[in-house]
Amino acid sequence: MIPVLTYSWHFVGILFAAACFAGFFGALLGVGGGIIIVPAMVLISHLPIKIAVAASLVSVIATSNAGGSAYVEQHITNLRLGMFLEIATTLGALSGSILALFLQDWLMLFIFAALLAYMGYASFVTRRTDTERITTDSFRLAKPDRLARYLSLRGVYHDEHENKNVEYVVTGTPVGLGVSYLAGITSGLLGVGGGVLKVSAMNQSMNVPMKVAVGTSKMMIGVTAAVGAIIFFLAGLVHFPVVAPVAIGTTLGATVGTMVMNKLPSTLLKWIFAALMAYLAYSMVAKGLALHFGVHWPQLG
């Protein structure tokens, strides 16, 4: 029997609410929000994971447009760095999307759960801020590698919290390219933006201040997701009536999130995010086990 979705206020309302939440957190943390949207569609709306991944990829573009444009306007984004790393992320997204079309659902659920667990862990351990590095001017004093020098990968932005202009020099471009390729694969495979991987690579391996990493990642995830979305779209997997409430919700959530980012305590946000990731990882593993092995773990909540 072919599953048929009846468009109702209830269906639209649930997806819209989950998407607002995802877009809001996505803007605060520089991620696409797919990491919340996909589990919501699978666990609450009971949609097949491939349809959820396809819809999520399109909504990641929406959140990138909304959040990315604000950070570009403020010149927090480093456009050159973003475009350079997009070479690797688009190639990764192409590989990941092709892989997703051939993978079984239960395996995708397990891979997704592993990514959720990693994101929770990363959010928990990256609670410290860039304040110390800004104070000691260490972002400016780093030595660029050859490629970074050739491509003029350096920059300056105005940090409103510190009330000073922060100069930085980009280093570690080979590591950045490698991690960006992996981020692209996760994006195409799982319908997420891959923002957490990009932000941590830029901030921890490439000497890019956190706010610049968030802004640049926010812009990049749009193009990364577009590559995956094109493949799913032409394969007939993007059910646009499903995408609609998700895209509207993520756009709204990302717009609000971008406006309030500087007013909220980031430590608390990261705690909430880590706990949410742990819960969703457990739920996705439970669904994968039930789907493929017939093993039923107890439901939380």
């Binding site: 072919i2 599953p3 048929v4 979705l5 009846t6 468009y7 949609l47 097949p48 349809i51 394969a235 007939g236 997997l237 993007v238 059910h239 646009f240 009536p241 499903v242």
Partner: peptide
């Protein structure tokens, strides 16, 4: 609107 969750419909 009713949406059959199939590739053929899309």
């Amino acid at each position: 609107v009713r949406v059959p969750l199939t590739v053929a419909w899309v």
